[in-house]
Computed example of a mutant assay.
Amino acid sequence: MPQPETRRLTTHVLDTAHGRPATGVTVRLARLSGGAREELAQAVTNADGRCDAPLLAGEAMRPGTYELVFAVGAYFAGAAAERPGYLDEVPVRFTIEPGLGHYHVPLLIAPYAYSTYRGS
């Protein structure tokens, strides 16, 4: 089992339409259980499109269902205003399994599309 200090959840956002990191995107993290939603963290992406610290780390990384919500509509309305965005908030729901360490959830965005994957 990974040591607590290696268990963490990170993310970054890349603006593929403009070929650059998406700076200033608000990211919210919640844990979902049954019908309950527990808000855990909120961060804003930096100049590299990353959050300055893990959204979740160590013992707080419990197995379960989580959701990251990326406020890409505000990003496209501001930083990339030459093209209005179709997307508002992009939710990414995923499961953290027991015994696994680092979870990295990147988001690739364009004004009319997005994709994600489990990164490293």
Rank of each mutant, 00 (worst) to 15 (best):
L9M: 01
L9N: 01
T10M: 07
V13Y: 00
L14V: 11
D15P: 05
D15F: 03
D15I: 07
T16I: 12
T16V: 14
T16N: 04
T16A: 09
A17L: 04
A17E: 11
G19D: 14
G19S: 09
G19A: 06
R20L: 07
R20G: 03
P21G: 10
P21D: 06
P21Q: 07
A22D: 05
A22F: 05
A22E: 05
T23L: 06
T23P: 00
T23E: 13
V25E: 01
V25S: 02
T26E: 10
T26Q: 11
V27E: 01
V27W: 01
R28P: 02
R28Y: 04
L29W: 07
L29A: 06
L29C: 07
A30R: 13
A30N: 09
A30D: 12
A30F: 04
R31Y: 02
R31N: 02
R31K: 15
R31D: 01
L32D: 01
L32A: 02
L32H: 01
S33Y: 00
S33W: 00
S33I: 00
G35I: 09
G35A: 13
G35L: 11
G35E: 15
A36L: 08
R37Q: 13
E38L: 12
E38C: 04
E38M: 10
E39K: 13
L40H: 03
L40K: 05
A41M: 06
A41E: 12
Q42A: 11
A43T: 15
A43F: 07
V44C: 06
V44D: 07
V44R: 14
V44E: 14
T45N: 01
N46F: 01
N46L: 00
N46T: 02
A47E: 14
A47K: 11
D48G: 12
D48Y: 09
D48E: 14
G49V: 04
R50H: 04
R50V: 04
R50E: 13
C51S: 12
C51I: 13
D52Q: 12
P54C: 02
P54V: 04
L55P: 09
L55F: 10
L55R: 10
L55T: 10
L56F: 12
L56I: 13
A57S: 15
A57Q: 15
A57K: 14
A57Y: 03
G58A: 15
G58M: 10
E59F: 08
E59P: 07
A60K: 12
M61E: 03
M61A: 09
M61T: 09
R62K: 15
R62Q: 15
P63E: 09
P63A: 08
P63G: 08
P63Q: 08
G64A: 07
G64V: 08
G64D: 07
G64W: 08
T65Q: 12
T65H: 06
Y66K: 06
Y66I: 08
Y66E: 03
E67V: 15
E67L: 05
L68T: 01
L68M: 03
V69K: 13
V69Q: 11
F70A: 07
